[in-house]
């Protein structure tokens, strides 16, 4: 559906996006993940044809976004960052204008507008001026603008920024349901959001793609590090002795010295072994009371931090 081939974007000597390539298949929900300034918006702006890449080509549904702009742009619904809207128009007028811009046929227009307003729950506010709407509604109006004309690809730039938790859930559900009919690309720096909604994640940092995978795979790959967190009451300071006999421990660090006299340690072990049972037995023998014993799960957050950190180290060498 979308093919990005060796795309580079330079601003003078600053390279915002550095030779990236990826494919997105029909019906996929793909998340763009990256720290601020990583090049997410720049990449999206290039896919939508708002800015031109310095090098490389982008095909949308087989059409080159630069050479066959009209055909390619017809397949795209774009919700830009910060939800820019025409504040002097009413919701319905705005959607109607977007329908005109997107070459919706006059006969179908009325029906198209109705459907879009229904999908995004805007019927109640259709005659209100956009400037009088709350942020959550504005977000939905912007989404409606992207949806009108039934484009095959939806590109949503930070769709949940600035919303309250309830609205975030609503928008996420909306995106999920849209994913059944459209190919969706969304950018975000909220990791839990991406792992909930997306089937595929593209992690991008300093203009380069660091990883393309499913959220599950990314999490699994990060699990190489096996860390156990344990909170103990160790009055006689015997913890060093207690863990000595346990095999496979690589490192133990004191994390926190709590006020109630307990201490929190993190114990790093070799991958694929679980020493929780040994810890329990040995600590009991030495008279150390365990308050908490937990094996940390790698999250997408860890995967992300790792990838971004590695990348930075690589850059310094």
């Amino acid at each position: 559906m979308i093919e990005v081939k060796n795309v580079t974007k330079k601003y003078g000597s600053f390279v915002a996006v550095d030779n990236i390539s990826f494919d997105i298949k029909e019906g996929e929900i793909v998340g763009f993940l990256g720290p601020n300034g990583a090049g997410k918006s720049t990449t999206m702006n290039m896919i939508t044809g708002f800015i031109e890449p310095t090098e490389g080509t982008i095909l949308v549904n087989g059409y080159d976004i630069q050479k066959k702009a009209r055909k390619a742009k017809k397949e795209i619904g774009y919700m830009p960052e910060g939800v820019p809207l025409y504040n002097d128009l009413t919701v319905k007028e705005f959607i109607s204008y977007m329908a005109d811009l997107k070459l919706v046929k006059r006969k179908e227009k009325k029906q198209v507008i109705e459907n879009v307003m229904e999908d995004t729950n805007l019927i109640d506010v259709q005659n209100k001026l956009i400037k009088n709407l709350s942020r959550g509604y504005k977000q939905r109006v912007s989404m409606a603008g992207a949806l009108v004309g039934n484009p095959k690809v939806l590109i949503l730039d930070e769709p949940t920024v600035g919303l309250d938790p309830k609205q975030i859930t609503e928008i996420r559900n909306l995106i999920k349901s849209l994913g059944k009919k459209h190919t969706v690309i969304l950018s975000s720096h909220i990791l839990s959001e991406v792992s909930q909604i997306c089937e595929k994640v593209i992690i991008i940092n300093s203009g380069k793609i660091v990883a393309i995978d499913t959220p599950e795979n990314l999490e699994n790959n990060t699990k190489k590090e096996n860390i156990i967190t344990v909170t103990v009451e160790d009055l006689e300071n015997k913890i060093e002795e207690a863990i000595k006999p346990i095999e496979g421990i690589e490192e133990m660090k004191l994390q926190k010295d709590n006020e109630d006299g307990t201490k929190q340690y993190s114990i790093k072990t070799k991958a694929d072994i679980d020493i929780r049972k040994n810890i329990f037995e040995n600590f009991a023998k030495e008279g150390i009371t365990i308050f908490e014993l937990k094996k940390s799960e790698a999250t997408l957050e860890d995967a992300f931090m790792n990838l971004v950190k590695n990348e930075e180290k690589g850059g310094e060498e």
């Binding site: 044809g49 708002f50 009209r70 742009k73 774009y78 830009p80 820019p84 977007m98 603008g145």
Partner: peptide, 14 residues
């Protein structure tokens, strides 16, 4: 300034 040019210039209109 408002960013609405993104809507305008990403539409199929030339």
């Amino acid at each position: 300034k408002n960013g609405t040019e993104q809507l305008l210039f990403t539409s199929p209109r030339s």
